[in-house]
Nucleic acid binder design. Structure first.
Length: 572
DNA sequence: CATGCGACTTAGTAGAGAAACC
DNA sequence: GGTTTCTCTACTAAGTCGCATG
């Protein structure tokens, strides 16, 4: 499944060039040379100054201060009011207390963190004032630790800082929210680099857990996190060769799916009739994944994470069947929490055969039973692999997202519209994808207000327009009467003014529409992860839209390969 | 086959920084 | 010039998927 490799021919120039390169190592090695400075550790704890007090039940106290400050720092956040959060925090906090403190502090509700909280607020205010030095220092750290050398190229590292200690903030109803995320020491850290590179040095008097030289992986640093026991990594920035190449490959796989998707669709429709239950379940699940862009849905360990599901892990309680709904037949209603506990709610009419199958799957089951009891992601992906080399469930999301963007752009862009109108069209196409993938965001806190402000501006612009139109009319009348040069000029001036204001008004209205439609939709995720950037690049080139209207600096860096590769006739 | 682990991609949000506004 | 508003970036959680292990 080798699709070629990307090669950077320049180091970090804005127009980094990529070239085709035929050959690529077949032994699974990801690099030949890797050298870096290691991670930036979290700054050590600074004890609170003496005047900052902590009260327990009205009495002065100071138990396990550092952990207490983690809670204090979050005091304004809703998290700290949640029972589960408080319980988990309190339990972990007690582990850090001396036995004396433990016997004194017995009820979190009698703790008063307000002075600590005030202190940190004041601190962050103060930090804003002297941010210049800090900025300089950050820049120095970035220059020193933010880059590595991989195979002759200086590459930007993604996250070179070790996560600081704090309280775990899970998403949704997470059973571990509030638990103490402990400080990572050099002794917890594994370094990965070339044998023949200059190895990163641990801080004075400490040592790394291990230094290894594994070129079958792309990470530079790893450690095990204590909440879930999972491994965290430091890896390269998306602009790096190694990430770009992988990204490109991903879209090439999706394009191969495009070529055979009709065959697969015919196949799963056929499988709806199978006499084998597992085949039918597989086929219906695949239909959902294809049609609704659902995620695969791996099983999760109960009690370890928030209760969320994807396609294969859907339960009976997550769907409702309606033989008739309004003027539609065979409607399925989905209502479940997906990744990040984002709600997926949708009603979709399905084919009769799918509907009948679903009824069958539901027979004799409790709400908490699996809908697809004969299916999991491993079975599904094995099947997909047989249908097409490299095919897995997530490829459908990539494929459907990209093909939707391409279709929508074709449909929505009109040749004679202005640049702002074209950008609105682009955003609408992007939005169609975000809706398909259910990429949501919390409506901005100030949304209503900012909407109102914009409307005020529009109203004002409208008034200005009608006033200027009146002036134009007046000028015309005057010109008719006098027929002199001066009045002729005046007509021209007013005509131009009207035109300009009309354009401004249109732009504002466009902005308003765009913003309103975007209230709870997050466009970024699909843009960054699902849309073949070559589609956008081609569109931009075709319609002479400035690239930076579509992609900001980071995005242009990430998609440098596509910007370089795609011409206006590119087709996904 | 179930289970767990490792590596990697995908995800929303908080807060910093930049731009617009007054 | 200071404040408000918007945009971007950093952060890190939460998925997917392949593979080893028993």
């Amino acid at each position: 499944m080798v699709v070629g490799t990307l090669k950077k021919t320049q180091i970090y120039s804005p127009s980094t060039l990529y070239l085709w390169e035929e050959e690529r190592s077949t032994d699974g090695s990801k690099w030949k040379f890797l050298e870096h400075k290691g991670p930036v550790l979290a700054p050590p704890y600074e004890p609170l100054p003496g005047h900052v007090r902590f009260f327990y039940d009205g009495e002065l106290s100071a138990p396990a201060e550092e952990v207490a400050t983690f809670f204090a720092k979050m005091l304004d956040h809703e998290y700290t009011t949640k029972e589960m959060f408080r319980k988990n925090f309190y339990k972990d906090w007690r582990k850090e207390m001396t036995s004396e403190e433990k016997s004194k502090i017995t009820d979190i509700n009698k703790c008063n963190f307000t002075e600590m909280s005030e202190y940190f607020k004041a601190q962050s205010e103060a930090r804003k004032q002297m941010s210049k030095d800090e900025k300089l220092e950050n820049e120095r750290i970035l220059q020193e630790y933010g880059f590595c050398v991989m195979d002759n190229h200086k590459e930007r590292i993604g996250n070179f800082r070790i996560e600081p200690p704090g309280l775990f903030r899970g998403r949704g109803d997470h059973p571990k929210m509030g638990m103490l995320k402990r400080r990572i020491r050099p002794e917890d850290i594994i370094i990965n680099c070339s044998k023949d590179s200059k190895h990163p040095k641990p801080p004075q008097g400490t040592r790394w857990k291990e230094v290894r030289h594994d070129n079958k992986v792309t990470w530079l640093v790893s450690w095990t996190e204590n909440i879930q026991g999972s491994i965290k990594y430091i890896m390269l920035n998306p602009s790096s060769r190694i990430k770009g190449e992988k990204d490109w490959q991903k879209y090439e796989t999706a394009r191969r799916l495009k070529k055979c998707v009709e065959r697969l669709r015919a196949q799963y429709r056929e499988d709806w009739k199978s006499k084998e239950m597992r085949v039918r379940q597989r086929a219906v699940a695949l239909y959902f994944i294809d049609k609704l862009a659902l995620r695969a849905g791996n099983e999760k360990e109960e009690g370890e994470t928030a209760d969320t599901v994807g396609c294969c892990s859907l339960r009976v309680e997550h769907i409702k069947l309606y033989p008739k709904m309004d003027d539609q037949e065979y409607v399925v209603e989905f209502d479940f929490l997906g990744k990040d506990s984002i709600r997926y709610y949708n009603k979709m009419p399905v084919e009769k055969r799918v509907f009948k199958n679903l009824q069958l799957f539901l027979e004799n089951k409790q709400p908490e039973d699996d809908l697809f009891d004969r299916l999991n992601t491993s079975i599904l992906n094995k099947h997909l692999q047989e249908l097409m080399d490299g095919l897995t469930a997530k490829v459908f999301r990539t494929y459907n997202a990209s093909i939707t963007l391409q279709q929508q752009l074709k449909e929505l862009t009109s040749p004679d519209e202005s640049i702002p109108a074209k950008i609105l069209s682009y955003n609408r196409a992007n939005r169609a994808v975000a809706i398909l993938c259910n990429h949501q965001r919390a409506a901005p806190k100030t949304f209503e207000k900012s909407m109102q402000n914009l409307q005020t501006k529009i109203d004002e612009k409208q008034k200005q327009l009608s006033a200027t139109r009146k002036q134009l009319k007046g000028a015309k009348t005057e010109h008719k009467a006098s027929h002199d040069d001066r009045s002729k000029k005046m007509v021209e001036v007013k005509r131009k003014a009207v035109q300009r204001i009309e354009e401004q008004l249109m732009k504002l209205q466009m902005q308003a529409t765009d913003r309103e439609e975007n209230k709870q939709i997050a466009l970024g995720t699909s843009k960054l992860n699902y849309l073949d950037p070559r589609i956008s690049v081609a569109w931009v080139k075709k319609w002479d839209v400035p690239m930076e209207k579509i992609y900001n600096k980071t995005q242009r860096e990430k998609f440098a390969w596509a910007i370089d590769m795609a011409e206006e006739d590119y087709e996904f």
